[in-house]
Write a protein that binds this DNA or RNA. Structure first.
Length: 530
RNA sequence: GGGGGCGUAACUCAAUCGGUAGAGUAGCGGGCUUUUAACCCGUAAGUUGAAGGUUCGAGUCCUUCCGCCCUCACCA
C-alpha cells in the first residue's frame, strides 16, 4: 500500500500532526459558498476593492507563491476562484500552514471577497485551514490525464482535474433526469425489479452467472428488466418504467460495456406507435437537457463528425421496404435471399421460419443498418425473430416492433407487447429448441403464468441510455459517458488476485516481482460485499 | 479471435542511421507581498511494460508474453 502514498507528503502529514493540526478534520465550515457564485458576485465589484466576508472550500490545483504572499486556485464542483493568502493578514500558525501545502490538498479559506488590482476575483484570506491532505499529486496541471486508460482507471483524478470532464458527466446526469421527468410527467411509475434472475430473458445476450449460497442455486444478472416490468402490467400498474442497470457477458467495444443502463417503459392500452411518439419526446427532452437547443429552436447534435437534427418528428421507415431498397428483392424471396447470403459470406441455416428470418435479419444488418445514420424509426420486423412482440393484425408474419437508430447505433427497441399466453409459450419453446447460447436455455414459466392471468394490450420500449448520452454529448466512446467503465483489474492492486477460500476480505497480494499475473478471472468475487 | 498501432520519470512528452536515456510539469531545498501555465537558483527522480535473442553496443532490430488504442469479427 505504501506506493499509494508519496513519501514527501507523508512527511508533510507528520509535520502537520506535530504542530497539532488535524489533517483530516471532521467538520467543514458551515457557511461555505460555491466558487462560481462568489466569482460572479466579485465581478460586480471594482478591481482592487474588497467587500463582505466569504468562505470557500475546494481543492488546491494551482499555486503561485511570493514569499510572504501566495495565490491559490481553489476548485469546487462547478467553479474555480483564487484565494490570496498574505502573511500580514493571517495568524502566524495559519500562514505557516501554507508552507506545508501541496497541490491537490482540500482546504478552506475565510476572508474578504474582492478583486485584485488586475481584477481577478479573489478571497483575501484571514483564516486558512486544511480539510484533507492529499498524499498523491494531482495530474499534470495543463494536460491533465491524457491516456484514455488512465483517465478511466483514475476517474476520480480525471474528474477533479478536468472541468470539461466534470461538465460532461454532469450533463449525462441531466440527460437521465430529463428522461425520468418526462415519464413521471406522463404518469409512469418508477419501479425497481430484481437484478438477480432465476431465468434470464427479455433480450438475446449471454448472461453473467452467479450463485446464491444459502439457497444453493445459480442465478443470472439480468440482461433486461422486460419480463418483470410486464408482470407489473398484469398486476394492474398501467404505466411503469425502470432505469435499469443490465449486464451482458459479451465483448467490450467503444459502444459496448458489460454493464450498461437501459431505460425501459411500458404503457397499458397503448401500442408501438405510441412508443415511437414517446421516444421522440424523450430524445428531444434529453437533447434539451444536454444543451443542444439552438437559437432557431432546433435540436442539433454533433457526433463522430456528423450533424444530427433531433427535432421531432423523426422519419419512419418500414423494415421490409428498406430491405427491398437496399437488396433489390423482397425478404420473402427465398432463392434470392439464399444467394445474397452467399455473396455476403453469411451462412444459410435453412427454411424453418426462425433460422430463415434470422438470416434475413443478418442481411438487413449487413446491407441496411450501416446506412442508417438516423434519427429514424425502422418499423415492423419479421415476427419470427421477435418472440416478445405482437404479430401485426394485417400480416402475422410481421411483428409490431420498431428499432430506433441514431448516429449509426441502435438506440431503442420497442414492441406492441405480446400478451397471448399460448403464443408466448410456443415462442419460448422455439427459442429453447434453438440452443443458441444467447437465447434463454429454459422457458420462463412464471412469466407465461402471469400472461395467463391476462395482460392488457400494451406498448413497451427500451432505450440505451449510455448510447443516447454518447450522441448527445458528442462522445466517441461509451467509456467517456460511463462514470466507471469496465476495466481489467490492475496488476498489483489485489483486485485480480486469487479469491480467498472463505468469502473473507480482499487478499492483499503484496506479490510484486513475478507475481501470479494469472488470468484467474474471478471478477465474480469482486461483486458487492454486502 | 484476425489485422494495424502504441507502451520511456508520478503526469505530459522528446531521444537522428543501433552509439552516454532528456525536457516541461509535479516533488524536495532556497529566494521573492498582486500573480494567472508567475519567475529565479539549486536538487532528486528510470529494471525504457516483461522475458529471451541478434550485436562490440539495443529505448531503437528479432521472437514470445502482458496491457492499451484503432479496425474487422462478435454484439436483435
Amino acid at each position: 500500500m505504501a506506493e499509494f502514498f508519496d513519501a514527501d507528503r507523508l512527511q508533510r502529514l507528520a509535520d502537520l500532526r506535530a504542530r497539532g493540526v488535524d489533517p483530516y478534520p471532521a467538520r467543514s465550515p458551515e457557511d461555505r459558498e460555491p466558487a462560481g457564485a462568489l466569482v460572479r458576485e466579485a465581478r460586480e465589484m471594482e478591481a482592487g476593492s474588497e467587500g463582505r466576508e466569504a468562505v470557500v472550500c475546494g481543492r488546491v490545483l494551482g499555486r503561485r507563491g511570493y514569499g510572504k504572499l501566495v495565490f491559490l486556485d481553489l476548485h469546487d464542483q462547478d467553479g474555480r476562484i483564487q484565494a490570496c493568502l498574505q502573511k500580514d493578514r493571517l495568524s502566524a500558525p495559519d500562514f505557516a500552514l501554507t508552507k506545508l501545502l501541496n497541490l491537490g490538498d482540500l482546504v478552506a479559506v475565510r476572508g474578504s471577497l474582492g478583486r485584485t488590482r488586475v481584477g481577478e476575483p479573489t478571497v483575501f484570506g484571514t483564516e486558512f485551514r486544511i480539510l484533507a491532505k492529499a498524499l498523491l499529486p494531482p495530474p499534470e496541471k495543463w494536460h491533465g490525464l491524457n491516456d484514455p486508460e488512465l483517465r478511466a482507471r483514475l476517474r476520480y483524478a480525471d474528474l477533479f482535474s478536468s472541468p470539461e470532464v466534470r461538465q460532461r458527466f454532469l450533463k449525462r446526469a441531466a440527460v437521465v433526469r430529463a428522461l425520468q421527468e418526462v415519464l413521471e410527467a406522463r404518469g409512469f411509475v418508477g419501479v425497481e425489479t430484481p437484478v438477480l434472475h432465476p431465468v434470464y430473458g427479455g433480450a438475446n445476450a449471454r448472461p453473467f452467472r452467479t450463485h446464491h449460497h444459502a439457497l444453493d442455486m445459480d442465478l443470472y444478472l439480468r440482461i433486461a428488466p422486460e419480463l418483470y416490468l410486464k408482470r407489473l402490467l398484469v398486476g394492474g400498474l398501467e404505466r411503469v418504467y425502470e432505469i435499469a442497470r443490465v449486464f451482458r457477458n459479451e465483448g467490450i467495444s467503444n459502444r459496448h460495456n458489460p454493464e450498461f443502463t437501459m431505460l425501459e417503459f411500458y404503457a397499458a392500452w397503448c401500442d408501438y406507435r405510441h412508443m415511437a411518439e414517446l421516444t421522440e419526446e424523450l430524445v428531444a427532452a434529453a437533447a434539451r437537457a444536454a444543451g443542444l437547443e439552438q437559437e432557431d429552436g432546433r435540436l442539433r447534435a454533433r457526433f463522430r463528425g456528423e450533424d444530427y437534427d433531433l427535432s421531432p418528428p423523426y422519419p419512419r421507415r418500414r423494415y421490409r421496404e428498406l430491405f427491398e431498397e437496399a437488396l433489390g428483392f423482397p425478404p420473402e424471396d427465398r432463392k434470392r435471399v439464399r444467394r445474397a447470403l452467399e455473396e455476403h459470406g453469411l451462412p444459410w441455416e435453412g427454411e424453418e421460419p426462425y433460422p430463415y428470418w434470422k438470416a434475413v435479419n443478418a442481411l438487413f444488418e449487413e446491407a441496411v443498418e450501416p446506412g442508417l445514420r438516423g434519427p429514424v424509426f425502422v418499423l415492423d420486423y419479421p415476427a419470427a425473430i421477435c418472440p416478445l412482440a405482437k404479430p401485426s393484425p394485417e400480416d402475422p408474419a410481421w411483428a409490431e416492433r420498431f428499432e430506433f437508430f441514431l448516429g449509426g447505433m441502435e438506440l431503442a427497441n420497442a414492441f406492441s407487447e405480446l400478451n397471448d399466453p399460448e403464443l408466448q409459450l410456443r415462442r419460448f419453446e422455439e427459442q429453447v429448441r434453438d440452443r443458441d447460447p444467447e437465447t434463454p436455455a429454459e422457458v420462463d414459466h412464471d412469466y407465461v403464468r402471469a400472461l395467463a392471468y391476462g395482460m392488457p394490450p400494451a406498448g413497451g420500449c427500451g432505450i440505451g441510455v449510455d448510447r443516447l448520452a454518447m450522441v448527445l454529448l458528442g462522445a466517441d466512446s461509451i467509456r467517456e459517458v460511463l462514470w466507471f467503465p469496465h476495466l481489467r483489474p490492475e496488476a498489483g492492486l489485489g483486485a485480480g488476485a486469487e479469491p480467498p477460500p472463505g468469502d473473507g476480505g480482499t487478499g492483499a497480494s503484496p506479490g510484486g516481482g513475478a507475481a501470479a499475473a494469472g488470468e484467474a478471472a474471478a471478477p465474480d468475487s469482486a461483486a458487492d460485499g454486502c
